[in-house]
C-alpha cells in the first residue's frame, strides 16, 4: 500500500502484505494488571495471561459502515481474535508472568481498519501478528515480601520482546453458490457470497481456529478444501517471509 508514512508504528513490509489486504496497523499498548487477591505464592498460578483484542471498523474506512456503536461484524471479529490468541497459545506464558499468582501482563491489541476493501479478518490477524512481534515489555519486578497492593517496579534493564511460540496466518474464503471457493474475497465478492470460511493456521500445520459465522450450510468436503488451500497458502507465505520472522 502506498500509504506507509515511515514512522515507528508502521513496521509492515508493504510488498508482503499487499498480497493480503491494504491495511495499516498500529502499536498496541501494554498495561500491567496486578491482581491483588492475596493468594500465597505456593498456590497454583490462578492468573493467566489475558489478551484483549479490539477491532474497530469505523465509518471512516468505508461507506458501508455507519457511524455509531460497533456493529455485529466488529464484535464477532473481536471475539474470534480473542479466542485464537488465548487458545492458540501463541505467546509463551512464561515470558508474561511477572510474579506467579500476583502479577501478570494484560495485552491490549487495538486494530483499526482505515480502508476497507473486503476480508478484514486476514488483514487483522496479519497486523496483530506483526504488532506482537514488535512488542517490547519493560523489565518489571514485584517485591517478594511486598504486600498484595504494591505496584511493580520497573527495573533499569532493557525491555525484551515477547516470545511467540507460533505465528498465525488467516486465510478466508467466500463460498459462492455453496460450492465455489473464492479466496481472499474483495468487497464486491463479499456481498455476493452465501457464506465465508476463515481458517487460521500456524507455521507448523496446526489449525488454530476456524470461523464460519453462520451463512449457508457447507459440506465437509468444502471445509476440507478450505483447509487444504489455507495450508498451501500458509506454507508459501512462511517461505516468502523466511520463517515468519520470530
Amino acid at each position: 500500500m502506498s500509504g506507509d508514512a515511515a514512522t515507528g508504528g508502521f513496521v509492515l513490509d508493504p510488498d508482503t502484505f499487499k498480497k493480503i489486504q491494504p491495511l495499516e496497523y498500529h502499536r498496541r499498548f501494554l498495561e500491567q494488571d496486578v491482581r491483588a487477591d492475596g493468594r500465597p505464592l505456593r498456590m497454583f498460578r490462578a492468573l493467566e495471561f489475558r489478551a484483549v483484542p479490539n477491532i474497530d471498523l469505523p465509518a471512516l474506512c468505508s461507506p458501508q459502515f455507519r457511524p455509531g456503536p460497533p456493529g455485529e461484524l466488529t464484535q464477532s471479529l473481536s471475539t474470534f481474535l480473542e479466542h485464537i490468541i488465548s487458545s492458540g497459545h501463541i505467546i509463551d506464558l512464561d515470558t508474561l508472568c511477572v510474579a506467579s499468582g500476583r502479577a501478570v501482563w494484560v495485552l491490549y491489541a487495538d486494530i483499526i481498519c482505515l480502508n476497507y476493501a473486503g476480508n478484514v479478518l486476514d488483514a487483522a490477524v496479519a497486523a496483530l501478528m506483526a504488532a506482537l512481534r514488535n512488542v517490547r515489555l519493560p523489565d518489571v519486578t514485584v517485591g517478594e515480601d511486598a504486600d498484595a497492593d504494591a505496584a511493580p517496579v520497573i527495573s533499569g534493564k532493557p525491555s525484551k520482546p515477547i516470545h511467540l511460540s507460533r505465528s498465525l496466518v488467516s486465510s478466508t474464503f467466500g463460498v459462492f453458490d455453496k460450492q465455489l471457493l473464492l479466496a481472499d474475497p474483495t468487497n464486491e465478492e463479499e456481498a455476493l457470497v452465501s457464506s465465508s470460511v476463515s481458517v487460521v493456521l500456524d507455521d507448523k500445520d496446526v489449525v488454530c481456529g476456524v470461523f464460519k459465522p453462520g451463512g449457508a450450510a457447507a459440506s465437509k468436503a468444502l471445509i476440507d478444501e478450505c483447509i487444504a488451500a489455507a495450508r498451501e497458502r500458509t506454507s508459501r507465505l512462511v517461505e516468502a517471509l523466511g520463517g515468519l520472522g520470530k
Binding site: M1, S2, G3, A5, T7, G9, L60, C61, S62, P63, L114, N115, Y116, A117
Partner: peptide, 24 residues
Amino acid sequence: RVGLFAVADGSAYVELGNTKCLAA
C-alpha cells in the same frame, strides 16, 4: 500525504511532530 485511500472520496494524513492524524 494526500489521497491515500481508494474507498474514500478524499483522504489525507498529517503528521505534526509526533501528532498523527488521518482524515477521510
